[in-house]
Every structure is written in C-alpha cells, then in structure tokens.
Design a protein around this nucleic acid. Structure first.
Lengths: 206, 206, 206, 206
DNA sequence: AATGAATGAGGGTTCATTCAT
DNA sequence: AATGAATGAACCCTCATTCAT
C-alpha cells in the first residue's frame, strides 16, 4: 500500500509538472521571459500561484525547465529514430525527419530559443550543445559507416557534413517560423533531403 | 534671428532624438523590450531620465520609434540606390546590396525584429509591410520593365519574384545573425545574386 | 472498554500536545514568533502540518500555549516546593531555588519572554501576572508568618519585599541569559539568598 | 553654484536618511525585524515606499543601518565625554553617565539589541564589539593612569574592571527596560558609581 | 530645457491555513 | 486521525512615469 502511495505521489508530481510546463512553454513562447507573469501560467494551468512554486523553485527555474525538457525530448526522439533503422542513410534521413517534425509540433520552443538572447542565451546554448554533442558522436559513427560502405563521398569530413546539415535545418526552421509558417515543415522533408543527399552522396551508377 | 533660433532649436531636438534612438536601439536589441530599463538608456545617452521622456512619450513609444526609424531608413536607402542606376537589373542588384549592407550595419535591428514576438510583433510587421508595399510597387515596375526588355523570364509573376527574393534575403540574414555572424553579409552578395538571377533571368545566348 | 478507549484517546492527545509544544518552544525561542514557520515545527515534531493544526487552532494560539504552559508549570513547581517545607524561611529559599532551576532548564522560555515585545508582550505579561498574583498571596502569607515569628524585619512591607525579590531574580536571569550563560544559574543560589536575606532578616544574636 | 547644488544634494540625502532611520528605529524596536513592514516605515516617514528603497538597499540593510548608527553614536558620545574631563576618575564617571543617558534616550535601541537573537545577533554583536574594542583601549589607558596615580587598586586588572563595569551597566539597562522603565535611568547614576567605585578604589585615608 | 527625487502600481515569492484523501 | 497538496493573502522590491526645482 505504501508502494502504491509513493507511486501515486510520484505520478502526481509528474502530472503537475507536465501540466505547468505545457502552459509555461506556450506563455513564455508568446511573451518572452520578462513579460511573462507567473500568475498567468498558474491561471492557465488551472492552479494557484503557490502550486507553481511548489513544483518549480522560481520563474527562472521554470523557464529553464521548459528549455531543458524540450532539448531532452528532442534528443530522445532522435536516438529512438536512429535505433529503428538499419541502413545508415535511412538513419540519417530519419533524424532529419524527426528534427523537422519536432519543431513543427513544438514551435513554442523555437520561439523560446530565438527569443532569449539576453541572459539565457548562454545557458540555453550550453544545454543545447551539451546534449547535441552527446549524440552527435552517434551520428558521426553513422556517417563513417556510410562512408566505409561507399555510400557517402569519402573526402567529406563527417563532422563538417553534420555541421552543414544542422545549419541547414536550423536556418530552414527559423525562416519557416519567422515568415509565418506558411507551409508544413515536414512536407519540406523531401526537398531538404534531396538537396542535402545530392551534395554528399557518392554518385551511383554511371 | 528668430528663424535662426527656431532652426537651432529644431536641430537640437533632432540631435537629442538621434542620440537617444541610437542608444535605445542598442539596448533594446541586447535586452529586449521588457528587460530594458529607461534608466539605462538615459545613462548611456548621458542624459537625465526626464529628458528621455521629454523627447519620447513613454517607453513603448521610444521602442516603436526605434523600429520606425529603422524601417524608414531602409526604405530611403533602397529608393536612393535604385535612383542611381539606369538599367533595371542593376537597380535590382543595388537593392539587394543595400538590403544586405543595411542589416550588416544595423544588426541591432534584426534582433529587435526577431525578438519581440509579443505585443509588438503585429505592430512591427504592420509598419514594415506598410513601408514595404509603398516601395514594392516601384520594384515591381522595375521587374516589369526588365521583362519587357526580355531580360527576365516572362512567365514569372513579378510579385512572386519579389516575394521569393525577400524571403531569401530575410532567411539569409536571420540565419547569419542566429548562427553567430561568422562571415561578412555583404560578401555573400555575389553568391546570392548569382543564385537568384540564374533562376529568373532569360537564358541569354545559345 | 469505552472508558479505556477514552482514556487512551486523552492520553494520545496529551502526548501529541506535549510533543508539539516542546518543539514549538525551542523553535519560537530560537527564531521569534514571526520568523518561525509552522512547517518547521511540524517537521521537527515528526508530524504533518495538518496535525499541528488539529491540536492548535493556529500559530498564534500555539505560541500562547507555549507561554501558558511555561507559566503554569512554574507556578506548580513553586507551590509544590513551598508545600514540602515547614519553616517559612525555608519555603522562601525553596521558591528562589525553584525559580532559578526552572529558568536554567527552560531557557527557551526566557528568550520568548524577552523577545516578543510586540503584540504579545501585553498578553504575556497579563498571563504572567495573573498566575503570579494567584500565588503571590501565598508567598505574602509566608512573609507575614515569618514576621510574626520575628524572623523578618517588621518594618518591611511583605508586598515590597516580594517585588524586590522578583526584580532581583528577573534581572539576574535576564543578565545571565543575555551575557551568554557563562555560569550555572542554580550555583548562584547561595549568593543571591545571602544578599537578600542579609537585607530582610532581623539581626539575630547580639 | 555647482558646489551649492552638490552640498544641497548631500544635505537632502542625509535628511532623508535620518528621517527614515528615526522612524525605522521606532518601528523595528516595537515589532522586531520580521514583523516590521517597509510600508509602515514609509508611511510613518511620510514617504513613498520607493523612496525608502532609494536610500536603503533593502529591509535588512535598513535594519543594520539603524543598529550601526546607534553604535556609532554611542561611541562618539563616549569619546567626546572622555575628552572633556581631565582627571581619570572623572573620565570614567562621565562614560558611565553617557552610557546611561544614551540608552535612556534611545531605548528603541536596547529593544533592538535584545530582540534580534536570530540571524542578526551575530552581526550586531560583531559591530558592537568592533566599535567597543576600538575605544575600550582608551578606557584601559585611563584605568592604568588612575592606577599609577594610586587612585585605583593596583591588583585589579583594568580589562577585568572594564568587563565588570560593562556587564553591570548592561544588566542594569536591560532590567530597567524589561521591568517597565519605572524610574529614570540617569538618576541611578549615583548609586551605580558609588557601588562600583567602592569596589575598585584604593581606600583613602585611614 | 533638463534633471533626478519621489512615487506606487505591479509582479515575484513566501507561508499560514484549509481540506480532500 | 493524519497528511501534505493546494491556495491566495500579504509582503518585498523594481521601475515606468511624474513633477518641482
């Protein structure tokens, strides 16, 4: 019974945290950190202000939790996606797809990443790259494997190829967001992969 | 003598306004609207806080003046540039060049445009497009002229061509800004124009 | 059976109340009323916050209960001590001893009495004097008895003698507390009684 | 003219600080640190809340300023008093007098010193002793001089004699305060000095 | 005209108290 | 009966705006 109690408590904590983070993500995204009021988050979450402070130490902490959750979840999705595929090129395609889908769904997060240049930018970038580099190694392995299989041009350095891919995707997403999301991000998947793979793939046949 | 006095007064007003706007642009860009304190702007401008309020009704107003001045000045530069050239294609190239140079120099402004999603975004976009459309007609005229001269593919609608150009430039500048301004914007002028013109120009010769 | 149940229940209530009061006394003494958090008392008592509120209406009430318990218990000790002795002078000595021992042990209480000047001071003093006067009569009786036995100078008004004794003891205890409890309070018993009795006693012999 | 301006400004700052400190001293003394509201201090000082914060960083800071001002002013009075007298014994008497008069007038401060056991006690004591030791040396010199003149018993260590004097005065003042200020503190001067000097003076004559 | 002292509305945060489980 | 999650009143502090000098 005690076990059930503990489990229930843990569940409640997670429910509440998710409940708050979901709202916070939306509000921070819309208004930016400084213009967001904790009151509004609490109201929209259907909770008292004190409850928000029960689950998050303060406003700054809540904000960074939003950022962290986003980054963490992107990483998880990417790793999971790669694991599902066998062929290295398929893995890469899958990562691209996941990346686009993620930001299409979580466009709150892009705005947050873009917004907070000021005091948080450093912190956000640190977190972002920390996770980024954690799994960039895995992606590099995949590129190397593809090269040894003769699928990708051998003269291209994997790290550079990844940097280019990342920049491409980021630019694309930023622009998509800033120009008003006129089309579906994931629909652009085909175009992007085509362009990218044309550049890096070993010309097959003839 | 009274005239000289009035002129002097007017000059002083403009000097003060410029002085304040320059600082405000920098600070708003760095911290965003909400995190910027009027105190800091006054201090950096070497003026009393009251003086800032003498020249600008309130903080919001000052912020929008920064935005307006930016847009206005971009428009002026573009019109001026076009006037200098005779050939329509040269005019277009010049506009592109001015656009890149402007944001390279005024990178404060990009950040401001990117930042303030919140309450200002709508207002900013309105102002932006208001000015934009004012001179987009002139650009359209140039495209049409170039088409009638057989320089640009006739099947391309001028308005679409302009939209694409604008999107291209905007994406480019946003990305340049967000990825850390690793290269000179205006240096990219050649690449951009080459790509763009390749797409829209009537294939000469052969 | 019901009786046993009721008895048990009553016992539990008293156990709980004592448990809470002991902790509360310590915490209030250390931090003062305003800076004490009910949470801390509950934690240190090993109870839930709600339980504290089951036994005490609110924080203020709990605080006053601490004070009351202290005063009550001092009174009980004093009466008990007096009852044990036969001779009036021994009774007085015993009261002094009890007084010193009490505050030596309950130095929490001195701090509480000293601390709360504010809203509680009046209330504390009222309670204190209420109990004080209740048994001051008994002490007065003892003085009168000693006078009629020719032990204490007849020209001294008992009430004044008691006032002086009380002031002396209080000063002594306050100072002892405020200067850092450098010595044992009860060890000073001999000195204090010697001084006091030298002043009030009828000079025996010669 | 600029000089006058600066002087005026400095004067204003000092006026305001005194104005606030006077009220703060009263309120902190009555309610203790935690129960005091900055709002109340501002109201009683006839100022806006913001103004209080213009002159003192925060509540804690204001509180410690009250304490510091008190200690500083006591020290100044003591030094000044000593300087006025020629004879060493007169100097000592003067210090005692000043000490009693000071706390009689500033009884707010005693309460503050007595009150805040908690977080501030250490800080207060540090400040207090810091200043105390600064001028205790001067007092020691006076004792030594009196000894070399054959006025004070040579076997008494000056530092001990001072410690005893301080404890005596403090006890006296505490008790006076805590038992309700029934008499005038400075009136007790004669009694105190008599007792003290009887103990330390070389027995003159016979 | 320029200043910056004064203000108080507004927002972050704490914590006594309640109440569903 | 016991708990501690939830709440919001209350309080500290900031900063846009005003206004007397």
């Amino acid at each position: 019974m005690k076990i059930t109690d503990k489990a229930k408590k843990k569940e409640l904590i997670q429910t509440r945290q998710k409940q708050i983070l979901d709202v916070a993500s939306r509000v921070f995204s819309k208004k930016g950190f400084a213009s967001t009021q904790v009151d509004e988050i609490a109201d929209l979450a259907g909770l008292g202000k004190g409850t928000v402070y029960r689950y998050f130490k303060n406003k700054k902490n809540l904000f960074l939790s939003v950022v962290d959750r986003g980054i963490e979840s992107l990483k998880d999705l990417a790793l999971e996606a790669m694991a599902k595929e066998k062929e290295p090129l398929d893995k890469i395609k899958k990562v691209i797809e996941v990346y686009l889908k993620f930001f299409e769904k979580q466009s709150d997060l892009i705005r947050i990443f873009i917004h907070e240049q000021s005091e948080f930018q450093k912190r956000i970038q640190k977190r972002y790259y920390q996770h980024y580099y954690e799994h960039v190694n895995k992606v590099e392995e995949i590129f190397k494997e593809a090269q040894s299989l003769g699928l990708i041009k051998k003269k291209i350095k994997p790290s550079l190829a990844i940097a280019i891919l990342t920049d491409m995707l980021n630019s694309f997403i930023y622009t998509w967001q800033l120009t008003g999301k006129k089309y579906s991000l994931s629909e652009s998947f085909t175009v992007i992969t085509e362009i990218y793979f044309t550049g890096i793939l070993e010309q097959k046949g003839k």
